[in-house]
């Protein structure tokens, strides 16, 4: 009898164990006809911005303007040469998955393109987005102009062409000294 009683107690305990219906976890065993478990997933995507102006890689393109005296005198707008996309044009691409992207232009000669003595105002060089995909920032002596006015939402995969032109602005003096006036613009893509 004592043995039978022990067996009954064990049986009751087993029934209690089997009747327990736990929460949805990795393993579930439930009396009845249905049971569920969960599996979590995680995908981690890192920030990236890939930005190119001109030739891909480390090459820095040089756009050359060679206005004639007549063009200077007449304030004629002229294209340059040396762009990777031909003539005065450069290839621009932006690939990014970050939000709030802006393009900022800065320069290394804050008083204008220089020849060591004289200067040409950076505002004399205009930039046009030929394909209309990504508005370029304005070039000026102070630098720091950003574009577009409304930051781009991510992700972005933009390819376009920017074209540069030189115009001696009305009122600006004609450079008094012939020579090469140089300056470098650095474009930076930033996620705000």
């Amino acid at each position: 009898m004592k043995k039978n009683a022990k067996m009954m107690v064990m049986g009751l305990v087993l029934v209690m164990v089997f009747c327990y219906a736990g929460p949805v976890l990795a393993e579930t065993s439930i009396h009845g006809d249905t049971a569920s478990v969960e599996l979590n997933f995680q995908v981690t995507i890192a920030n990236y911005i890939e930005f190119r102006v001109g030739t891909a890689g480390v090459t820095t393109n040089t756009i050359n303007f060679s206005p004639t005296a007549a063009e200077l005198g007449a304030n004629t707008t002229i294209p340059g040469t040396g762009g990777d996309a031909g003539g005065s044009q450069v290839t621009v691409s932006l690939l990014s998955n970050t939000p709030q992207i802006t393009i900022t232009a800065t320069n290394d000669t804050p008083t204008g393109l220089e020849n060591g003595i004289d200067r040409i105002d950076w505002l004399s060089i205009s930039t046009t987005d030929v394909l209309g995909n990504l508005a370029p920032p304005l070039l000026n002596n102070a630098g720091g102009e950003a574009s577009p006015d409304t930051p781009l939402a991510g992700p972005q995969n933009i390819t376009t062409t920017w074209e540069y032109e030189y115009t001696r602005r009305v009122g600006d003096p004609i450079p008094s000294i012939p020579g090469n006036y140089v300056g470098t613009v650095t474009y930076t893509a930033t996620s705000l």
Partner: peptide, 24 residues
């Protein structure tokens, strides 16, 4: 014994997380 159904996915205890880390 009473009818029962059983399912397990991942580790025996806890909820397993499958991580896909995408290289930059």
């Amino acid at each position: 014994a009473p009818a029962e159904v059983r399912i397990r996915v991942g580790a025996v205890s806890g909820v397993t997380t499958v991580v896909h880390a995408v290289p930059l």
